[in-house]
Design a protein around this nucleic acid. Structure first.
Lengths: 216, 216
DNA sequence: GTCGCTAACGTACAGTGTATAGTACAACGT
DNA sequence: ACGTTGTACTATACACTGTACGTTAGCGAC
């Protein structure tokens, strides 16, 4: 039985392969055995580099966070904040699995800390007190997380004609007597889920609220 | 072989049992076979009432949404909005699996539509144009989703002493040269994740932003 | 050259969702 | 009263999953 030579694997290679597989087959359908097969290796070989599947997830998440650009310099702080939030959204849209990885595991890792550092330092430089800066950071992060998770979910749904048909049917089956507003707004609701405009609308609401606080 | 008598099952009973199991054993560790066993029935019996596992998930989600109270009457609209958002958060905290169910599947079902109707009608009555009402609804929903998902995640983590220790270690191992702000704000960051104050802070930011738009 | 370390292996287990086929029972038309 | 039919549930099976355990083989150090 021809054994693969030693030291063909390393954690970075495993992470990259795992990420490829995750983007190709979706976050479901991803499996350790699949990664191992892709590497031409037995499933247990991965356990040399990761304690378990969650550990690999953490590594993938941190690897993806490494793709986040730093906040831009020489802009007013609201624009810097906007930029970071938009970059995170774009990254999540490019790598849909990131949404699930962010939502289902605590943050840890070097690259993740780097991203947090970027946003937090912008907020501190803008004059926010430590506690407010921390709260604001969490608020912005969770908004991006929720909004983009939802956007991905909806986009994923729109590609499945069967699901789309079911959704439309369930909307139309609603009595306009019981749910007049939902029926009235059905076109807007399905049109406005997702997209730059929807995301920026919520983000601007938050930033306007912030601006109001710094003015006082 | 003693057969279980016919018509002992119905979809509501299955949903209730599934929900119990989900709250007892967590969203992971939940399985169709577990539900079936709890009901004293073969796994395939469930397929009489649900086309597959996702279908059951949808039913559980809608069942939980049925627990949402309607928006309160006779309050200024911002307070009505606040109330709905807080109620949704509380429901998610009481039933942590709801977060995952909301984030991973499109919205459908009677009770879910009822909740949407409640918030949308508040916004329309407040004078928002259809498109703005829809956008605002999505923004509020996704904020609650993200913020509460994160809160649950963090709370879940705080209960695991091993994970807590790892998190703390990873924070302290960060060089305060590379990540000065993260290190400086470490206490605030771990103190302010989650909790009523954190949630209300972000919610008030959004509502302040909204108020600014209605004034103009 | 040989020893020890450890990377990768093989095997095994307990579990998953669900496709497919079969079975027994309630209701119904005659 | 009696076959017929629809259907609620069962049995079996398949292709998977993550990972615990024990084993082997390749490599660097001596």
């Amino acid at each position: 039985m021809p054994r693969t030579p030693r030291n063909t694997l390393n954690s970075e290679l495993v992470v990259r392969t795992a990420l490829e597989l995750m983007e190709a087959k979706g976050a479901d359908g991803f499996s350790l055995r699949g990664v191992a097969a892709e590497l031409g290796v037995g499933p247990m070989a991965l356990y040399t580099y990761f304690r378990n599947k969650d550990d690999l997830y953490d590594a993938i998440r941190d690897h993806l966070m490494g793709l986040m650009p730093p906040p831009p310099d020489d802009l007013p702080w609201p624009d810097q904040v906007r930029s970071v939030c938009r970059d995170l959204r774009i990254l999540m849209l490019q790598h849909p699995c990131l949404a699930q990885l962010l939502a289902s595991r605590p943050l840890s890792g070097h690259e993740t800390a780097r991203v947090a550092e970027g946003l937090l330092s912008v907020l501190r430089s803008a004059g926010f007190e430590p506690e407010i800066a921390a709260r604001t950071h969490t608020t912005l992060f969770t908004y991006v997380l929720g909004a983009t998770t939802w956007e991905i979910q909806m986009a994923h749904e729109k590609l499945d004609p069967d699901a789309l048909r079911r959704l439309r049917a369930s909307m139309e089956s609603l009595s306009s007597r019981d749910f007049p507003t939902v029926v009235e707004l059905a076109p807007e609701l399905s049109r406005t889920t997702g997209g730059d405009k929807q995301f920026n609308y919520g983000l601007d609401l938050l930033l306007d609220g912030l601006a109001a606080r710094t003015a006082s």
